[in-house]
Simulated scan of single mutants.
Amino acid sequence: MVRIGNIEVGEFPLLLAPMEDVSDPPFRAVCKENGADLMYTEFISSEGLIRNAEKSVQKLDIYDYERPIGIQIFGDKIESMRQAAAIAEEAQPELVDINYGCPVKKVACKGAGAGILLDIPKMQKMTEEIVKQVSLPVTVKTRLGWDDSTIKIVEVAKRLQDVGIKALTIHGRTRVQMYKGIADWTKIAEVKNHPDIHIPIFGNGDIDSPEKALEYKNKFEVDGIMIGRASIGYPWIFNEIKHFMKTGELLAPPSMDERVRTAKKHLEFSLEWKGEKQGIYEMRRHYTNYFRGIPNFKPYRTRLVESENPEELFGILDEVGGIFEDAYSMA
């Protein structure tokens, strides 16, 4: 059983990655229903939290059915991050996670996210202050380094473990790579297999199928896997991986009825949590993935992303279910 502090997260936990404008409560709801063991909020600006910015505070929303869940914070100022961690703890998650991996220019080039990989002593000090501040387990998500010449991930892991983090997730790319190229899991394995490392190490990057998940589990011996982009519009990947690891058999892909049901549930929660205008807008990124591979779906996708009326959207989804059900089941 893998434990993060005193929190049990499963024999081989599957984690939902914190993704900006994706990993919100509506999306987390459908991922949890489909097998995610541990989830994180979207990353939250420490400056936004301490200034009580509405968008940042809203991201603290968590629900009992999501547990265990972590709140992820980011920032470049140690004192702001310490205060933000205290605010996050008040929202009563199971853990607080620090984002040292975001590669986006507006974050990383200001010294936050993956930018702090250029200043490992500061990373260690910031982490130490956050661990001291909160009573919850603190975890970290990071990358291999800023670029190929600055990869010191074993040193980073040891330093962070020394100041008290309870788990580390490593994305197998550098900041310069962004999301290009192939994630290098051999360096993740170096951390996991280092004799001085005793906290759980989770791998992240390029896991998009049950077969690859099992292969990487066995080959790199990580304690669990974090899944990001492959889950967008396809929350079924968590249960598919679990079933394959247990039985060696692939689950049948979700039926058209299940795709429609899940998309409707996601939309309903999105409207409830974000309000009609924002809920409709932010749901648009998911439709293509919910119905990926469906022949002749493009006209319906166009209608789904252009409609601004909730009733019309639910009607289109029902229409999709009726029209494509037979063709999909025969495919």
Rank of each mutant, 00 (worst) to 15 (best):
E325M: 09
I199S: 08
T127L: 08
M126D: 02
L136T: 12
F12R: 13
L95F: 05
V30P: 12
E79N: 15
L60R: 06
G75N: 12
F324L: 03
A86M: 15
E325H: 14
I241K: 05
V96C: 02
V131C: 05
E94N: 04
E129S: 10
K141P: 01
E240V: 03
M283L: 14
L214Q: 12
K122Y: 01
L304M: 10
E282W: 14
T139W: 01
V191Q: 01
S135G: 15
I225H: 11
I7A: 14
E268T: 15
K105H: 10
T41A: 04
A88W: 06
D64L: 15
R3A: 13
A53S: 13
K242R: 09
E11M: 13
V260A: 08
K219R: 15
K132C: 08
A114G: 12
L136D: 11
P103G: 01
F220Q: 12
L144P: 05
R301M: 11
T288E: 15
E155D: 15
V156R: 06
V320H: 00
E311M: 01
W236F: 13
K132F: 05
C102P: 00
I44A: 02
V9C: 14
S45K: 02
K264N: 08
A85I: 06
R51I: 02
I201M: 10
D206C: 09
D147V: 11
D162S: 15
E89A: 14
I73A: 05
M283N: 14
L118A: 10
A183S: 00
E258C: 09
M123C: 06
K158I: 13
I241L: 09
V305D: 03
I170W: 00
D24E: 09
A213K: 10
K59D: 08
G70M: 02
D76F: 12
A189W: 06
K187V: 01
T174Q: 01
D326S: 13
G113P: 10
E94H: 03
A36M: 11
I116F: 04
L118K: 15
E129G: 05
M245F: 08
K242A: 08
E190S: 11
F220M: 08
A327T: 13
Q124V: 15
D61P: 04
T150W: 04
K166H: 00
E282L: 12
I237V: 12
H171V: 01
K242D: 08
N193D: 14
D37Q: 09
E276G: 11
H266V: 04
M330H: 13
Y290S: 03
V96W: 03
Q58G: 12
D24K: 07
H194A: 03
C102I: 00
T41V: 07
N296D: 11
K59V: 10
V57C: 01
W185S: 00
I153D: 13
R28P: 06
I237P: 08
K110A: 13
G101Q: 01
Q161R: 03
I241V: 10
I225F: 06
G293Y: 07
W273T: 14
K59T: 06
S135I: 12
Y281L: 15
R261I: 09
I7H: 14
K122T: 01
E221P: 07
D147K: 04
I165Y: 03
G233T: 11
